[in-house]
Design a protein around this nucleic acid. Structure first.
Lengths: 342, 342
DNA sequence: TTGAAAGCGCTAACAA
DNA sequence: TTGTTAGCGCTTTCAA
């Protein structure tokens, strides 16, 4: 049996109050008494029970984080960052992902419920499966939340996201500047707000320049490489082999772009010589594939940092600096080239 | 203020003991009484405090998981699997990663300490930075641990890993069969036991066939794509441009292999025409890059599953089936070709 | 089948 | 600067 604060107090010959004071470091204690208590702690190998402490202080000093999954380049970066920010203020996180049931929205609801049961001081939420209303409802019951990677109308003050519409515009401009006027798209899931925003930005900018994307040139994926591969295959099947009726392909994230490039290559199409490809996110692999991927960088880590700090400020009365704008940025590498240079 | 079990009991007109019984579902309660309590729970929106419950039951019903980081394809898969296994038995996990200080070993020690403070019922550990002795020491203090992806001498019964020596042998055989006799290696960190095991297996098999790998053909990376790129560049710089003094390259994981292929391609070298490349792990991207990567599949998810089940059995007196062997497997795709066919 | 009461290990108010 | 004590919200005997 692990020893308790009582054992420590007894061994040190002090009251539990005193022992508690030296353990937590708050409250006046005579240096010499403190030393005696420390000694007792040492010899007993005492570790305070965080549960008991939490019960009495009514806080576990922890924030809950929901992500749909742990896999993938995107969510890992988020968790990494949140963990670091919390460590800086001596707090920590508990995570939930997925859930018992099949439906993504239900899973998210489930995960959030789990987190609330764990009595977190606040919640960081990342999910494109939740409805805006789900989030509004949750916020009404529990205002200490921060929403990542989407902007929920009415909840702007707790939402943190890069401007994905701008990201989409950046991608479109890049293609337009390179002279592309026939483009295809591998989209993310259509219920994902961030995907929709970047798609709108992309399409709007193209439209303003007079270029339309026929709907048969738009295929929907789910952000995984496997879906990118399937989408590219579908595109090829639909549009016949060379010559392709488009000169550029926009993919809603880098993993899908990488997979798409591999099916293009397998079909004998060279990127960017035969076809330009632009990705989105600037994931860890983007710079390390061939050809290096031109993409729109979304610094999701920075977004997570800002969200975490804001939530820390609200939950723990801190005043960490928070920047609300994390702008997307075009990263020119090798997968897009001028159409007339082809 | 959230309502407590007392409120529920009062509203339902029963004692807290009774309320507790219906909440936990254990112990005899008259159906009609139970209904009344349920009603009270509903109207109060009562949620039991998991902290208080834990304090009294002396278990949070949770396992701790340490991973060096959340990023990367490998660790995500591990967390995903562990989470699922735990959910199956109505338990959950708390994770820790990295730590405050720079040194990976200290970080791991730190993270483990954090987990122990959180009063987990058991620990799942993944770290190649820890010394065997660290783990043995920990096990002496806390036997409810499971070690992932390495075998610690003396701790075999709590260690779960694919046979990386065999994995290395598989890679070597694949190359040998394809007629390669001059090979280069991009290794993982030399303190990583799994890396060492696969390297030994690889080198031994090669050696048995009479092929030696000169030390200047071995470059060390750290498993990241960026390090794979740097390693490949170093290899190229060291061995001059074409013709390369080796016909095959073994990379200690797929992300490094993918990055290496991209620098080879940038240097005008074609894989597999000019050079065969074999990876390791079979990460999510391996099948979706060009050329599709021939690699040794390590089903780390399966390893994590087995470890988790074993730990569940030990911590919660369950009897879930545990398979100890998760064999590595060669996955032939396109990045290796016969040398004489080149 | 129920209620009362004694903890679980800690914090914090209060008295000394 | 200390020790004592009353909670924190729940589970679990033990009687009734």
């Amino acid at each position: 049996m692990a020893s308790t604060i009582k054992d420590v107090a007894r061994l040190a010959g002090v009251g539990v109050g005193t022992a508690s004071r030296v353990i937590s470091g708050k409250g006046p204690v005579a240096p010499e008494t403190a030393a005696r208590v420390q000694q007792a702690i040492q010899t007993l190998g005492f570790r305070p029970s965080s549960i008991a402490r939490a019960l009495s202080r009514k806080s576990l000093d922890m924030l809950g984080v929901y992500v749909p999954q742990y896999q993938g380049l995107f969510h890992g970066a988020v968790l990494e960052t949140i963990g670091r920010e919390l460590r800086d203020v001596d707090r920590h996180m508990v995570t939930a992902s997925g859930g018992a049931c099949g439906d993504a929205r239900l899973q998210a609801l489930d995960g959030i419920d789990f987190l609330r049961q764990r009595e977190c001081d606040g919640l960081l939420l990342m999910s494109h499966a939740l409805h805006d209303d789900d989030l509004r409802q949750l916020h009404a019951q529990m205002p200490q939340i921060a929403v990542l990677n989407r902007i929920v109308p009415g909840l702007e003050s707790v939402c943190f996201s890069s401007d994905h519409a701008l990201g989409g515009r950046l991608a479109a401009q890049c293609l337009l500047e390179a002279g592309h006027r026939e483009v295809a798209i591998i989209s993310g899931p259509h219920h994902a707000p961030d995907n929709e925003a970047r798609l709108h930005g992309f399409l709007d900018t193209l439209g303003a320049a007079g270029v339309r994307v026929p709907s048969e040139h738009i295929i929907t994926g789910d952000f995984t490489p496997a879906s990118g591969r399937a989408a590219a295959e579908a595109l090829l099947a639909r549009c016949g082999p060379a010559p392709l009726p488009f000169s550029a392909l926009f993919c809603a994230n880098d993993p899908m772009a990488i997979a798409a490039i591999s099916v293009l290559a397998a079909a004998g199409l060279r990127v960017p010589e035969d076809l330009s490809v632009i990705g989105y996110d600037d994931c860890e692999f983007a710079a390390h594939v061939w050809p290096a991927l031109t993409t729109v960088r979304i610094d999701i880590g920075a977004v997570a940092t800002q969200a975490t700090r804001d939530l820390i400020n609200r939950c723990y009365g801190r005043d960490r600096p928070v920047i609300r704008d994390v702008a997307p940025e075009l990263v020119r590498r090798q997968s897009v080239r001028r159409v007339d240079a082809a």
